[in-house]
């Protein structure tokens, strides 16, 4: 792995930084600029909610931050390393070791038990076979689903599936947890449970949380709210500040 993304690197600057990042979908006359030059700095330990209307580029920014997508231009620094210059494999290793994902659609493997879903990142990390179930159970414990470990996705409710997804995201103890509309498919009570969980992870484990949402109720749980409009950062303020 690239030495510059080691956890032990001196934390001089912010954890992640976007500089003049653009993203254009399509080519020629059909080209659509989803991001028109985004600057964003996020420090370790922060809890950031990214908001904005549909098509404002908030999900695109999230995908680029999560190394799921590549920027068209601009720089993405992760612990001062230029992510946009990394190879596909290096970005996969970055996802493996430092990032955890939670999606709106849960994205669990079908017909797979909760335990196996949570074990999956451990397998890719090369955790020894004997250590995997214990770690996976610990993560399931943290989301309160220990007794559901042998249930497949189809046997779990939406809220439970999302908690399995969170367990899968945190089982590797990532630096950053990226959640794209994590409560978008859930009712209000389940949504608040999921948000409480994210707050606890941020507070107790020091995991930096980035969350895209369009619900102001959910954004209120974050420490900081970044608002996107038309592919640019429109406002960036800490919760509690006046709008």
């Amino acid at each position: 792995m690239n030495a510059t993304v080691e956890r032990t690197a001196p934390e001089s600057g912010p954890l992640i930084e976007l500089r003049e990042v653009t993203k254009v979908y399509g080519q020629g006359p059909a080209a659509f600029p989803a991001l028109r030059g985004v600057d964003l700095r996020i420090d370790a330990g922060d809890f950031v909610a990214i908001m904005g209307p549909s098509g404002s580029g908030k999900s695109t920014a999230m995908n680029i931050l999560g190394c799921l997508d590549s920027p068209t231009s601009g720089a993405y620094l992760f612990r001062d390393a230029h992510v946009e210059k990394l190879t596909r494999n290096q970005r996969a290793l970055l996802r493996r070791h430092d990032l955890g994902f939670v999606f709106q659609g849960f994205n669990l493997l079908a017909r797979t038990t909760a335990l196996e879903n949570v074990e999956l990142p451990l397998i890719y990390r090369g955790e020894p076979r004997a250590a995997r179930p214990a770690k996976a159970r610990e993560a399931l414990d943290a989301v309160g689903l220990r007794q559901w470990e042998q249930h497949t996705s189809a046997e779990l409710s939406g809220g439970q599936q999302q908690r399995v997804a969170i367990a899968r995201a945190i089982v590797t103890n990532p630096t950053i947890l990226l959640a794209d509309e994590p409560t978008g498919n859930l009712d209000s009570q389940r949504s608040h449970e999921i948000m409480d969980l994210l707050v606890a992870l941020n507070r107790d484990r020091g995991i930096t949380v980035l969350m895209v949402t369009h619900e102001p109720d959910m954004a209120r749980y974050a420490k900081r709210v970044v608002r996107f409009v038309d592919g640019r950062v429109d406002s960036d303020r800490h919760n509690g500040e006046k709008r």
């Binding site: 999560g66 494999n89 996969a92 996802r95 994205n107 493997l109 890719y124 990390r125 899968r168 995201a169």
Partner: peptide, 16 residues
């Protein structure tokens, strides 16, 4: 394809 997307997202290498 979605399954492959999930695996890539949680850190699988293409060759894996």
């Amino acid at each position: 394809t979605r399954e492959i997307g999930i695996r890539l997202a949680i850190g699988a290498l293409e060759r894996e």
